[in-house]
Design a protein around this nucleic acid. Sequence first.
DNA 1: CCTACCGATCGGTAGG
DNA 2: CCTACCGATCGGTAGG
Lengths: 197, 197
Amino acid sequence: MATAAPIRSRKAQIDRTATALFRARGFAATSMRELATELGLEAGSLYSHIKSKEEILHRVCFGLAEDFFAGFAAATLDTAAPIATQLRLAIEAHVRVLTRDSAASAVFLHEWRHLSEPARTEFLALRDRYEASFRELIQRGIAANELHAPDAAFAALTLLASLNWLPAWYRPDGKLSPDDIAHRLAEQLLGGLLTNK
Amino acid sequence: MATAAPIRSRKAQIDRTATALFRARGFAATSMRELATELGLEAGSLYSHIKSKEEILHRVCFGLAEDFFAGFAAATLDTAAPIATQLRLAIEAHVRVLTRDSAASAVFLHEWRHLSEPARTEFLALRDRYEASFRELIQRGIAANELHAPDAAFAALTLLASLNWLPAWYRPDGKLSPDDIAHRLAEQLLGGLLTNK
DNA sequence: CCTACCGATCGGTAGG
DNA sequence: CCTACCGATCGGTAGG
């Protein structure tokens, strides 16, 4: 009889547990021994599955970056739709990524600076590109007279800031479902941007 | 002849330099040797001026908490003023604290979790109380029909989130002065909240 | 996946 | 403020 396949690969299990620890204690303050204990094995054994502590961080940060880009691309696929609609969908997609895995999101948002070069610079370039996508969408909305804001860059920054605070207070077992939260955030943030309310 | 008094006390100098390092690398990843080198002395010598690494973090976090509370109190001193005015002043006071020392602000916002108990719990209680102040102000504004928002708690969270992103992008030598930034942020964030725009 | 271990570095102290 | 040092812990490896 073959042994039952593990529900998740050991590597994925390590990533998941490490992500939770990185979020709770920070990357630098999380030790590989702590991680190993949490997984029920010895510190040295981790290295049969991963190459280094930073490799985990790298996977988490760049994996989430992909998710954010994919969400934005899907939200803005229909370029004929009103910009306000595209923006609303982009906000909801962003919130969906944040709530699907808020631990990984928190690591993505706060622990990336422990990446060593060149990964750190590459990561920041991705993040800048993502912010620029929102900024440009808002700019197009202003040009089309669908949105109003004194400064598109400012508006994009505060919009993403509001959304990115979510992992700090979101509880998966809270009263509001991820979709409720996404709708409410989109509603409130667009409320300040829409030309005719 | 007496030697010239140091411009700042050595202790204050240590706090300042440590704050910059904590912000750049994170508390856990900053070593006392690094800090000592930056100050031009040996690691052991730091301990003639401070008791521990965490003591510095404690001073920074609780010192900033005091500043935030003082700013809010000053902004809401005139209880006869319109709530919208009080809120605008509170936003500007918050931004002023953030821009006056953005390194300390970043440490306040992100490194507090490296405080050990009971300081950590005390700190979170202060932060909660501060957020509650904003929430209650917004609630009163809604009751007085000066502000509108589907949910005061939500509004307070997103408002503070937008403001607290500032240390991440603020550059003291940028084009906008702290007061410019404060005004713009207040304008934009109130734009979504005011009943009659 | 474990045992046994490496060199490096950590926060902090004693004694001057 | 320095020299010299402490015990603890770190990320990671060799060999099985």
